[in-house]
């Protein structure tokens, strides 16, 4: 339970951090995934750069019709942000469902998305929000959409010398309803299945819907077939059932001792129905 010896550096600022990373150091954010791995000696980085100490990456700001969240913003900061609760309630609702309070106090949004655990909560909401990630290296900065960012289990579009600098989500009005429904693994708190839904009505009918899915497969995704099935519908129980059944259709679902692939697909349909109904009930 004691990690191997490693060097630890606290960078003065972001440029300093990027320079250290370019020399081969491993970024440390909240440490909620990396530190346990190091204690088990499954990970043995020689040098850590502590990004969580970078105050310049800890912010939640509104600009135009977008909300910008710095990478080292903790889950608790997201969960309790008055600005997010008003303008993008799906994200605080999702953050509040992550792990336990200790994890939410330490874990960061940038660390979570860069780690890309297939059962992490955030990816469901970030897919549904069609979030953008600002990635930065010592040389350049680029913006990648959520659907291109998450590639596979623990695999993202991040280059070896890049970090997530910021997460950008849309500022929503009251017409948009959102809901996150999750089956929590009883021991780890990870999402066995997590479904985030955003919806808007247009003259009584569903005019817009996004369904983000995590936990089911190696990579989070938008359930396009289910979205298409809902658009233009009134959102009756039968409409919701029919669309929810499509959420995990044709998906190569994962299986473990807790939940088989078939059970995961079944849970996805049940919880998608709950999340869709929940989101529609919250549309103004």
């Amino acid at each position: 339970m004691i990690p191997q010896k490693f060097d630890y550096a606290v960078p003065k600022n972001l440029d300093d951090a990027l320079q250290l990373l370019a020399s081969g150091a491993k970024p440390l954010a909240g440490g909620m995934s990396l530190i346990p791995m190091m204690k088990l000696r499954l990970a043995a980085p020689e040098r850590l750069v502590d990004l969580a100490r970078l105050k310049e990456l800890n912010y939640i700001r509104e600009s135009g019709n977008e909300l910008h969240i710095g990478a080292t913003t903790t889950h608790y900061d997201v969960e309790s942000s008055a600005l997010l609760l008003r303008k993008c309630p799906l994200l605080p609702e999702t953050a509040a469902a992550i792990g336990d309070l200790q994890v939410r106090n330490m874990g960061t949004i940038g660390g979570s998305v860069a780690h890309a655990d297939p059962a992490a909560d955030y990816p469901a909401a970030l897919q549904a929000l069609e979030a953008k990630f600002v990635l930065k290296s010592g040389k350049a900065e680029r913006t990648v959409a959520a659907r291109d960012f998450f590639v596979d289990a623990f695999t993202t579009a991040l280059g070896p010398d890049e970090i997530v600098r910021e997460v950008v989500v849309p500022a929503e009005d009251a017409a948009t309803g959102a809901f996150y429904a999750k089956v929590e693994h009883p021991a780890s708190g990870f999402a066995v299945v997590g479904i985030a839904v955003r919806a808007r009505r247009n003259a009584g009918r569903i005019g817009f819907v996004r369904i983000g899915v995590t936990g089911v497969a190696n990579c989070s995704y938008l359930a396009a077939a289910a979205e298409a099935a809902l658009e233009g519908k009134l959102g009756s129980d039968a409409d919701i059932e029919a669309a929810a059944a499509l959420v995990a259709g044709g998906v190569d679902a994962n299986s473990d001792l807790y939940a088989s692939a078939d059970y995961r697909r079944h849970l996805a349909a049940v919880y998608a129905a709950r999340a869709i109904a929940g989101a529609l009930s919250r549309c103004a």
């Binding site: 088990l40 499954l42 289990a153 473990d256 692939a261």
Partner: peptide, 13 residues
């Protein structure tokens, strides 16, 4: 012992 939930996905990848 610690990564059971990830074995299936990793193997597939």
């Amino acid at each position: 012992a610690v990564g059971q939930r990830l074995l299936d996905g990793t193997a597939k990848m």
